[in-house]
Design a binder for these strands. Sequence first.
DNA 1: TTCCATTGGAGAGTGGCACTATCTAAGAGC
DNA 2: GCTCTTAGATAGTGCCACTCTCCAATGGAA
Lengths: 213, 213
Amino acid sequence: MRLAELSERSGVPTATIKYYLRERLLPPGERITATQAEYGEEHLRRLRLVRSLIQVGRMPVATAREVLAAAEDESLSQNTRMGAAVWALPHGPEPDEDDPHAARAREQADTVLRRMGWSYGQELGDTSPAYRMLVAAIASLDRLGYPHDTEHLLVHARLAGELAVADLDLVETYDTPPEQVEAVVALTVLYEPVLLSLRRLAQTEESGRRFKE
Amino acid sequence: MRLAELSERSGVPTATIKYYLRERLLPPGERITATQAEYGEEHLRRLRLVRSLIQVGRMPVATAREVLAAAEDESLSQNTRMGAAVWALPHGPEPDEDDPHAARAREQADTVLRRMGWSYGQELGDTSPAYRMLVAAIASLDRLGYPHDTEHLLVHARLAGELAVADLDLVETYDTPPEQVEAVVALTVLYEPVLLSLRRLAQTEESGRRFKE
DNA sequence: TTCCATTGGAGAGTGGCACTATCTAAGAGC
DNA sequence: GCTCTTAGATAGTGCCACTCTCCAATGGAA
Protein backbone atom coordinates (compact mmCIF):
# COMPACT_ATOMS: atom_id res chain seq x y z
CA MET A 1 0.00 0.00 0.00
CA ARG A 2 1.37 3.39 -0.91
CA LEU A 3 0.73 6.78 0.58
CA ALA A 4 -2.30 7.58 -1.56
CA GLU A 5 -4.02 4.36 -0.60
CA LEU A 6 -3.12 4.76 3.07
CA SER A 7 -4.69 8.20 2.88
CA GLU A 8 -7.82 6.92 1.20
CA ARG A 9 -8.37 4.02 3.57
CA SER A 10 -7.80 6.15 6.66
CA GLY A 11 -9.54 9.30 5.50
CA VAL A 12 -6.47 11.34 6.43
CA PRO A 13 -5.11 13.73 3.74
CA THR A 14 -1.74 12.79 2.27
CA ALA A 15 -0.23 16.09 3.36
CA THR A 16 -1.20 15.30 6.94
CA ILE A 17 0.26 11.79 6.74
CA LYS A 18 3.50 13.28 5.49
CA TYR A 19 3.40 15.64 8.43
CA TYR A 20 2.91 12.75 10.86
CA LEU A 21 5.80 10.87 9.25
CA ARG A 22 7.98 13.93 9.66
CA GLU A 23 6.93 14.25 13.29
CA ARG A 24 7.64 10.56 13.86
CA LEU A 25 4.12 9.72 14.91
CA LEU A 26 4.11 7.13 12.16
CA PRO A 27 7.09 4.88 11.38
CA PRO A 28 8.43 5.31 7.82
CA GLY A 29 7.20 2.87 5.21
CA GLU A 30 9.48 0.23 3.79
CA ARG A 31 11.51 1.86 1.06
CA ILE A 32 10.96 0.03 -2.23
CA THR A 33 12.84 2.39 -4.50
CA ALA A 34 14.42 5.79 -4.03
CA THR A 35 11.06 7.44 -4.41
CA GLN A 36 8.49 4.89 -3.24
CA ALA A 37 7.68 3.37 0.11
CA GLU A 38 5.32 0.58 1.02
CA TYR A 39 2.96 0.79 4.02
CA GLY A 40 1.25 -2.13 5.74
CA GLU A 41 -1.82 -2.78 7.85
CA GLU A 42 0.11 -1.84 10.97
CA HIS A 43 0.63 1.62 9.53
CA LEU A 44 -3.10 1.94 9.03
CA ARG A 45 -3.77 0.83 12.63
CA ARG A 46 -1.18 3.21 13.95
CA LEU A 47 -2.52 6.07 11.90
CA ARG A 48 -6.00 5.55 13.30
CA LEU A 49 -4.58 5.43 16.81
CA VAL A 50 -2.72 8.69 16.20
CA ARG A 51 -5.91 10.33 14.99
CA SER A 52 -7.73 9.12 18.11
CA LEU A 53 -5.11 10.60 20.37
CA ILE A 54 -4.97 13.92 18.56
CA GLN A 55 -8.56 14.51 17.54
CA VAL A 56 -10.58 12.71 20.18
CA GLY A 57 -8.04 12.99 22.97
CA ARG A 58 -7.14 16.57 21.93
CA MET A 59 -3.55 15.69 22.58
CA PRO A 60 -0.64 17.83 21.34
CA VAL A 61 1.45 16.14 18.67
CA ALA A 62 4.54 16.11 20.88
CA THR A 63 2.66 14.29 23.64
CA ALA A 64 1.17 11.75 21.28
CA ARG A 65 4.71 10.99 20.18
CA GLU A 66 5.75 10.30 23.77
CA VAL A 67 2.76 8.08 24.44
CA LEU A 68 3.44 6.05 21.32
CA ALA A 69 7.13 5.80 22.14
CA ALA A 70 6.30 4.41 25.58
CA ALA A 71 3.80 2.00 24.06
CA GLU A 72 6.37 0.42 21.81
CA ASP A 73 9.48 0.66 23.93
CA GLU A 74 10.85 -2.88 23.64
CA SER A 75 13.01 -2.46 26.71
CA LEU A 76 9.98 -2.31 29.00
CA SER A 77 7.89 -5.22 30.19
CA GLN A 78 4.38 -5.65 28.84
CA ASN A 79 2.88 -4.30 32.02
CA THR A 80 5.24 -1.39 32.37
CA ARG A 81 4.64 -0.51 28.77
CA MET A 82 0.87 -0.40 29.27
CA GLY A 83 1.22 1.65 32.38
CA ALA A 84 3.72 3.97 30.74
CA ALA A 85 1.47 4.53 27.77
CA VAL A 86 -1.62 5.22 29.84
CA TRP A 87 -0.01 7.52 32.28
CA ALA A 88 1.78 9.45 29.60
CA LEU A 89 -1.70 10.57 28.57
CA PRO A 90 -2.07 14.15 29.73
CA HIS A 91 -4.79 16.67 30.34
CA GLY A 92 -4.82 20.28 31.32
CA PRO A 93 -2.31 22.49 33.08
CA GLU A 94 0.39 21.23 35.44
CA PRO A 95 0.16 22.01 39.15
CA ASP A 96 2.29 24.88 40.35
CA GLU A 97 5.07 23.78 42.70
CA ASP A 98 4.89 26.55 45.28
CA ASP A 99 1.15 27.06 45.33
CA PRO A 100 -0.47 26.41 48.74
CA HIS A 101 -3.56 25.07 46.97
CA ALA A 102 -1.43 22.51 45.15
CA ALA A 103 0.29 21.47 48.38
CA ARG A 104 -3.02 20.76 50.08
CA ALA A 105 -4.32 19.07 46.96
CA ARG A 106 -1.30 16.81 46.93
CA GLU A 107 -1.99 15.62 50.47
CA GLN A 108 -5.58 14.95 49.65
CA ALA A 109 -4.68 13.05 46.50
CA ASP A 110 -2.29 10.91 48.53
CA THR A 111 -5.02 10.19 51.05
CA VAL A 112 -7.37 9.07 48.29
CA LEU A 113 -4.76 6.80 46.72
CA ARG A 114 -3.89 5.33 50.11
CA ARG A 115 -7.50 4.67 51.03
CA MET A 116 -8.08 3.03 47.66
CA GLY A 117 -4.97 0.92 48.15
CA TRP A 118 -3.58 2.08 44.83
CA SER A 119 0.09 1.42 45.31
CA TYR A 120 1.29 2.27 41.80
CA GLY A 121 -0.11 5.76 42.02
CA GLN A 122 1.59 6.24 45.36
CA GLU A 123 4.95 4.86 44.24
CA LEU A 124 5.05 6.71 40.98
CA GLY A 125 3.82 9.88 42.62
CA ASP A 126 4.82 13.03 40.87
CA THR A 127 6.31 11.21 37.93
CA SER A 128 2.85 10.19 36.79
CA PRO A 129 0.96 12.68 34.61
CA ALA A 130 -2.34 11.23 35.80
CA TYR A 131 -1.32 11.96 39.39
CA ARG A 132 -0.26 15.50 38.54
CA MET A 133 -3.51 15.96 36.67
CA LEU A 134 -5.42 14.87 39.77
CA VAL A 135 -3.48 17.28 41.95
CA ALA A 136 -4.04 20.15 39.52
CA ALA A 137 -7.75 19.39 39.37
CA ILE A 138 -8.17 19.31 43.16
CA ALA A 139 -6.10 22.49 43.42
CA SER A 140 -8.47 24.23 40.97
CA LEU A 141 -11.48 23.22 43.02
CA ASP A 142 -9.75 24.54 46.13
CA ARG A 143 -8.68 27.80 44.49
CA LEU A 144 -12.18 28.48 43.21
CA GLY A 145 -13.72 27.64 46.54
CA TYR A 146 -15.69 24.61 45.39
CA PRO A 147 -16.18 21.62 47.71
CA HIS A 148 -13.85 18.65 47.36
CA ASP A 149 -13.96 16.64 50.55
CA THR A 150 -12.22 13.32 50.58
CA GLU A 151 -15.42 11.30 50.82
CA HIS A 152 -16.70 12.83 47.62
CA LEU A 153 -13.41 12.17 45.86
CA LEU A 154 -13.57 8.57 47.07
CA VAL A 155 -16.94 8.17 45.39
CA HIS A 156 -15.28 9.13 42.12
CA ALA A 157 -12.30 6.89 42.82
CA ARG A 158 -14.47 3.88 43.54
CA LEU A 159 -16.43 4.37 40.34
CA ALA A 160 -13.20 4.91 38.40
CA GLY A 161 -12.01 1.59 39.77
CA GLU A 162 -15.11 -0.16 38.47
CA LEU A 163 -14.60 1.42 35.07
CA ALA A 164 -11.01 0.26 34.97
CA VAL A 165 -12.09 -3.32 35.60
CA ALA A 166 -14.58 -3.17 32.74
CA ASP A 167 -12.02 -1.55 30.44
CA LEU A 168 -9.33 -4.08 31.18
CA ASP A 169 -11.82 -6.86 30.50
CA LEU A 170 -12.13 -5.44 27.01
CA VAL A 171 -8.37 -5.19 26.62
CA GLU A 172 -7.99 -8.86 27.47
CA THR A 173 -10.08 -9.82 24.47
CA TYR A 174 -7.05 -8.86 22.37
CA ASP A 175 -4.60 -11.65 21.78
CA THR A 176 -1.14 -10.28 21.21
CA PRO A 177 0.73 -7.98 23.59
CA PRO A 178 1.29 -5.17 21.05
CA GLU A 179 -2.41 -5.16 20.24
CA GLN A 180 -3.22 -5.05 23.94
CA VAL A 181 -0.96 -2.08 24.52
CA GLU A 182 -2.50 -0.21 21.61
CA ALA A 183 -5.98 -1.21 22.76
CA VAL A 184 -5.51 0.06 26.28
CA VAL A 185 -4.31 3.42 25.00
CA ALA A 186 -7.06 3.70 22.40
CA LEU A 187 -9.82 2.56 24.73
CA THR A 188 -8.70 4.87 27.50
CA VAL A 189 -8.86 7.83 25.16
CA LEU A 190 -11.93 6.85 23.16
CA TYR A 191 -14.09 6.04 26.16
CA GLU A 192 -13.37 9.36 27.84
CA PRO A 193 -15.89 11.32 25.79
CA VAL A 194 -18.36 8.46 26.23
CA LEU A 195 -18.04 8.73 29.97
CA LEU A 196 -18.15 12.52 30.07
CA SER A 197 -21.16 12.80 27.80
CA LEU A 198 -23.07 10.17 29.76
CA ARG A 199 -22.27 12.02 32.94
CA ARG A 200 -23.64 15.24 31.51
CA LEU A 201 -26.76 13.50 30.28
CA ALA A 202 -27.18 11.90 33.70
CA GLN A 203 -26.82 15.29 35.36
CA THR A 204 -29.43 16.84 33.15
CA GLU A 205 -31.68 13.95 34.02
CA GLU A 206 -31.01 14.11 37.74
CA SER A 207 -31.40 17.87 37.94
CA GLY A 208 -34.68 17.54 36.07
CA ARG A 209 -35.83 15.04 38.66
CA ARG A 210 -34.85 17.23 41.60
CA PHE A 211 -35.67 20.72 40.46
CA LYS A 212 -38.73 20.07 38.39
CA GLU A 213 -40.70 23.28 38.19
CA MET B 1 -13.38 47.28 43.05
CA ARG B 2 -11.76 48.50 39.87
CA LEU B 3 -10.10 46.59 37.10
CA ALA B 4 -6.66 46.50 38.68
CA GLU B 5 -8.00 45.01 41.89
CA LEU B 6 -10.20 42.52 40.07
CA SER B 7 -7.10 41.43 38.22
CA GLU B 8 -5.05 41.10 41.38
CA ARG B 9 -7.66 39.14 43.31
CA SER B 10 -8.35 36.75 40.44
CA GLY B 11 -4.80 36.36 39.20
CA VAL B 12 -5.95 37.19 35.66
CA PRO B 13 -3.98 39.92 33.79
CA THR B 14 -5.87 43.15 33.16
CA ALA B 15 -5.39 42.80 29.41
CA THR B 16 -7.11 39.43 29.56
CA ILE B 17 -9.98 40.78 31.62
CA LYS B 18 -10.46 43.52 29.04
CA TYR B 19 -10.52 40.83 26.40
CA TYR B 20 -13.19 38.89 28.28
CA LEU B 21 -15.26 42.05 28.68
CA ARG B 22 -14.98 42.68 24.97
CA GLU B 23 -16.03 39.10 24.26
CA ARG B 24 -18.96 39.43 26.66
CA LEU B 25 -17.82 36.62 28.92
CA LEU B 26 -17.95 39.10 31.75
CA PRO B 27 -20.71 41.70 32.17
CA PRO B 28 -19.43 45.30 32.10
CA GLY B 29 -18.80 46.96 35.43
CA GLU B 30 -21.06 49.68 36.70
CA ARG B 31 -19.96 52.89 35.07
CA ILE B 32 -19.02 55.43 37.71
CA THR B 33 -17.65 58.09 35.43
CA ALA B 34 -16.81 58.25 31.75
CA THR B 35 -13.53 56.49 32.37
CA GLN B 36 -14.06 54.32 35.45
CA ALA B 37 -16.16 51.31 36.20
CA GLU B 38 -16.84 49.49 39.43
CA TYR B 39 -16.79 45.68 39.70
CA GLY B 40 -18.35 43.60 42.46
CA GLU B 41 -17.94 40.17 44.04
CA GLU B 42 -20.18 38.68 41.38
CA HIS B 43 -17.69 39.79 38.74
CA LEU B 44 -14.96 37.99 40.62
CA ARG B 45 -17.06 34.83 40.85
CA ARG B 46 -17.94 35.01 37.21
CA LEU B 47 -14.34 35.58 36.21
CA ARG B 48 -13.25 32.48 38.11
CA LEU B 49 -16.00 30.48 36.45
CA VAL B 50 -14.89 31.71 33.04
CA ARG B 51 -11.34 30.66 33.75
CA SER B 52 -12.57 27.21 34.82
CA LEU B 53 -14.47 26.76 31.61
CA ILE B 54 -11.63 27.96 29.40
CA GLN B 55 -8.55 26.64 31.11
CA VAL B 56 -9.75 23.49 32.89
CA GLY B 57 -12.59 22.70 30.52
CA ARG B 58 -10.48 23.69 27.47
CA MET B 59 -13.55 25.36 26.09
CA PRO B 60 -13.41 27.84 23.19
CA VAL B 61 -14.32 31.38 24.19
CA ALA B 62 -17.38 31.40 21.93
CA THR B 63 -18.74 28.26 23.60
CA ALA B 64 -18.12 29.56 27.09
CA ARG B 65 -20.18 32.58 26.12
CA GLU B 66 -23.09 30.38 25.10
CA VAL B 67 -22.93 28.32 28.28
CA LEU B 68 -22.93 31.45 30.41
CA ALA B 69 -25.77 32.96 28.42
CA ALA B 70 -27.86 29.84 29.01
CA ALA B 71 -26.97 29.88 32.70
CA GLU B 72 -28.30 33.37 33.22
CA ASP B 73 -31.19 33.42 30.79
CA GLU B 74 -33.96 34.83 32.97
CA SER B 75 -36.64 33.59 30.63
CA LEU B 76 -35.88 29.97 31.49
CA SER B 77 -36.94 28.10 34.61
CA GLN B 78 -34.33 27.18 37.18
CA ASN B 79 -34.27 23.59 36.03
CA THR B 80 -34.19 24.37 32.34
CA ARG B 81 -31.41 26.83 32.95
CA MET B 82 -29.29 24.24 34.73
CA GLY B 83 -29.94 21.72 32.04
CA ALA B 84 -29.27 24.25 29.32
CA ALA B 85 -26.00 25.28 30.86
CA VAL B 86 -24.74 21.74 31.39
CA TRP B 87 -25.66 20.49 28.02
CA ALA B 88 -24.22 23.47 26.28
CA LEU B 89 -20.87 22.15 27.51
CA PRO B 90 -19.13 20.64 24.51
CA HIS B 91 -16.30 18.28 23.75
CA GLY B 92 -14.66 17.16 20.57
CA PRO B 93 -15.84 17.02 16.97
CA GLU B 94 -19.46 16.85 15.91
CA PRO B 95 -20.82 13.66 14.35
CA ASP B 96 -21.06 13.66 10.56
CA GLU B 97 -24.66 13.55 9.32
CA ASP B 98 -24.27 11.10 6.47
CA ASP B 99 -21.73 8.79 8.02
CA PRO B 100 -22.92 5.19 8.40
CA HIS B 101 -20.88 4.89 11.61
CA ALA B 102 -22.73 7.86 13.06
CA ALA B 103 -26.10 6.41 12.07
CA ARG B 104 -25.39 3.16 13.88
CA ALA B 105 -23.94 5.07 16.82
CA ARG B 106 -27.12 7.12 17.05
CA GLU B 107 -29.25 4.00 17.35
CA GLN B 108 -27.02 2.60 20.01
CA ALA B 109 -27.02 5.85 21.96
CA ASP B 110 -30.81 5.86 21.84
CA THR B 111 -30.90 2.29 23.13
CA VAL B 112 -28.67 3.23 26.05
CA LEU B 113 -30.78 6.27 26.94
CA ARG B 114 -33.96 4.22 26.70
CA ARG B 115 -32.63 1.40 28.85
CA MET B 116 -31.46 3.93 31.44
CA GLY B 117 -34.85 5.60 31.36
CA TRP B 118 -33.26 8.97 30.63
CA SER B 119 -36.15 10.80 29.11
CA TYR B 120 -34.55 14.23 28.81
CA GLY B 121 -31.76 12.89 26.66
CA GLN B 122 -34.30 11.17 24.45
CA GLU B 123 -36.56 14.16 24.10
CA LEU B 124 -33.82 16.67 23.51
CA GLY B 125 -32.05 14.30 21.16
CA ASP B 126 -29.89 15.97 18.57
CA THR B 127 -30.31 19.38 20.08
CA SER B 128 -28.19 18.35 23.04
CA PRO B 129 -24.41 18.72 22.66
CA ALA B 130 -23.90 15.97 25.23
CA TYR B 131 -25.98 13.63 23.08
CA ARG B 132 -24.09 14.57 19.94
CA MET B 133 -20.84 14.09 21.81
CA LEU B 134 -21.95 10.60 22.81
CA VAL B 135 -22.88 9.75 19.24
CA ALA B 136 -19.56 11.07 17.93
CA ALA B 137 -17.66 9.08 20.54
CA ILE B 138 -19.45 5.81 19.74
CA ALA B 139 -18.97 6.50 16.03
CA SER B 140 -15.22 6.89 16.58
CA LEU B 141 -15.06 3.55 18.39
CA ASP B 142 -16.96 1.95 15.54
CA ARG B 143 -14.84 3.56 12.84
CA LEU B 144 -11.62 2.46 14.47
CA GLY B 145 -12.92 -1.05 15.01
CA TYR B 146 -12.91 -0.97 18.80
CA PRO B 147 -15.59 -2.81 20.81
CA HIS B 148 -18.58 -0.83 22.06
CA ASP B 149 -21.37 -3.25 22.81
CA THR B 150 -24.40 -1.90 24.56
CA GLU B 151 -23.76 -3.77 27.78
CA HIS B 152 -20.39 -2.13 28.15
CA LEU B 153 -21.88 1.29 27.45
CA LEU B 154 -24.52 0.61 30.06
CA VAL B 155 -21.80 -0.01 32.64
CA HIS B 156 -20.54 3.50 31.92
CA ALA B 157 -24.05 4.93 31.96
CA ARG B 158 -24.88 3.37 35.30
CA LEU B 159 -21.69 4.73 36.86
CA ALA B 160 -22.34 8.13 35.28
CA GLY B 161 -25.75 8.07 36.92
CA GLU B 162 -24.20 7.46 40.34
CA LEU B 163 -21.79 10.33 39.78
CA ALA B 164 -24.62 12.64 38.84
CA VAL B 165 -26.40 11.86 42.10
CA ALA B 166 -23.28 12.67 44.11
CA ASP B 167 -22.70 15.86 42.11
CA LEU B 168 -26.23 17.12 42.50
CA ASP B 169 -25.97 16.48 46.25
CA LEU B 170 -23.11 18.96 46.26
CA VAL B 171 -25.07 21.45 44.20
CA GLU B 172 -27.93 21.35 46.68
CA THR B 173 -25.62 22.64 49.40
CA TYR B 174 -25.83 26.01 47.62
CA ASP B 175 -28.68 28.22 48.71
CA THR B 176 -29.69 30.56 45.95
CA PRO B 177 -30.73 29.52 42.44
CA PRO B 178 -28.09 31.59 40.63
CA GLU B 179 -25.38 30.07 42.78
CA GLN B 180 -26.76 26.61 42.09
CA VAL B 181 -26.70 27.16 38.36
CA GLU B 182 -23.13 28.40 38.50
CA ALA B 183 -22.18 25.55 40.80
CA VAL B 184 -23.56 22.85 38.56
CA VAL B 185 -21.63 24.24 35.60
CA ALA B 186 -18.42 24.69 37.55
CA LEU B 187 -18.61 21.32 39.27
CA THR B 188 -19.39 19.51 36.05
CA VAL B 189 -16.33 20.99 34.42
CA LEU B 190 -13.97 20.91 37.38
CA TYR B 191 -14.69 17.31 38.32
CA GLU B 192 -14.06 16.04 34.81
CA PRO B 193 -10.28 16.00 35.15
CA VAL B 194 -10.68 14.48 38.62
CA LEU B 195 -12.68 11.64 37.17
CA LEU B 196 -10.43 11.11 34.16
CA SER B 197 -7.22 11.12 36.17
CA LEU B 198 -8.64 8.70 38.72
CA ARG B 199 -9.73 6.43 35.90
CA ARG B 200 -6.24 6.43 34.46
CA LEU B 201 -4.69 5.76 37.85
CA ALA B 202 -7.17 2.94 38.37
CA GLN B 203 -6.28 1.47 35.00
CA THR B 204 -2.59 1.53 35.76
CA GLU B 205 -3.37 -0.20 39.02
CA GLU B 206 -5.63 -2.78 37.46
CA SER B 207 -3.29 -3.55 34.59
CA GLY B 208 -0.48 -3.96 37.11
CA ARG B 209 -2.62 -6.45 38.98
CA ARG B 210 -3.49 -8.45 35.86
CA PHE B 211 -0.32 -8.37 33.80
CA LYS B 212 2.25 -8.39 36.53
CA GLU B 213 5.52 -9.57 35.01
C1' DT C 1 11.18 4.80 -25.57
C1' DT C 2 8.83 8.77 -24.46
C1' DC C 3 6.15 11.47 -21.62
C1' DC C 4 3.18 12.60 -18.01
C1' DA C 5 1.25 11.78 -13.46
C1' DT C 6 2.72 10.37 -8.96
C1' DT C 7 5.75 9.77 -5.07
C1' DG C 8 8.60 10.90 -0.97
C1' DG C 9 10.74 14.50 1.06
C1' DA C 10 11.67 19.19 2.78
C1' DG C 11 10.70 24.02 3.73
C1' DA C 12 7.73 27.70 3.90
C1' DG C 13 3.14 29.34 4.45
C1' DT C 14 -1.72 29.49 6.51
C1' DG C 15 -5.51 29.96 9.61
C1' DG C 16 -7.49 29.85 13.98
C1' DC C 17 -7.44 31.44 18.41
C1' DA C 18 -6.33 33.06 23.01
C1' DC C 19 -4.35 36.37 24.43
C1' DT C 20 -1.17 40.84 24.77
C1' DA C 21 0.88 45.31 23.57
C1' DT C 22 0.11 49.95 22.12
C1' DC C 23 -2.26 54.04 21.89
C1' DT C 24 -5.50 57.73 23.15
C1' DA C 25 -8.54 60.72 25.46
C1' DA C 26 -10.72 61.44 29.74
C1' DG C 27 -10.79 61.70 34.29
C1' DA C 28 -8.84 60.67 39.28
C1' DG C 29 -6.06 62.02 43.01
C1' DC C 30 -2.49 64.33 45.34
C1' DG D 1 -1.75 71.80 37.94
C1' DC D 2 0.40 67.71 36.93
C1' DT D 3 1.07 63.01 36.91
C1' DC D 4 -1.05 58.35 36.90
C1' DT D 5 -4.57 55.28 35.92
C1' DT D 6 -8.56 53.81 33.39
C1' DA D 7 -11.67 52.26 29.63
C1' DG D 8 -11.83 51.26 25.16
C1' DA D 9 -10.30 50.26 20.55
C1' DT D 10 -6.93 48.38 17.23
C1' DA D 11 -3.29 45.88 15.91
C1' DG D 12 -0.10 42.63 16.84
C1' DT D 13 2.04 37.92 18.83
C1' DG D 14 2.90 33.20 19.56
C1' DC D 15 1.56 28.73 19.20
C1' DC D 16 0.35 24.80 16.64
C1' DA D 17 -1.83 21.65 13.55
C1' DC D 18 -1.89 21.31 9.48
C1' DT D 19 -1.39 22.50 4.22
C1' DC D 20 0.92 24.27 0.09
C1' DT D 21 4.59 24.40 -3.09
C1' DC D 22 8.56 22.60 -5.09
C1' DC D 23 11.70 19.25 -6.66
C1' DA D 24 14.04 15.34 -8.45
C1' DA D 25 13.26 10.51 -9.20
C1' DT D 26 10.28 7.19 -10.94
C1' DG D 27 6.52 4.22 -12.51
C1' DG D 28 3.43 3.19 -15.87
C1' DA D 29 0.72 3.98 -20.07
C1' DA D 30 0.98 4.73 -25.02
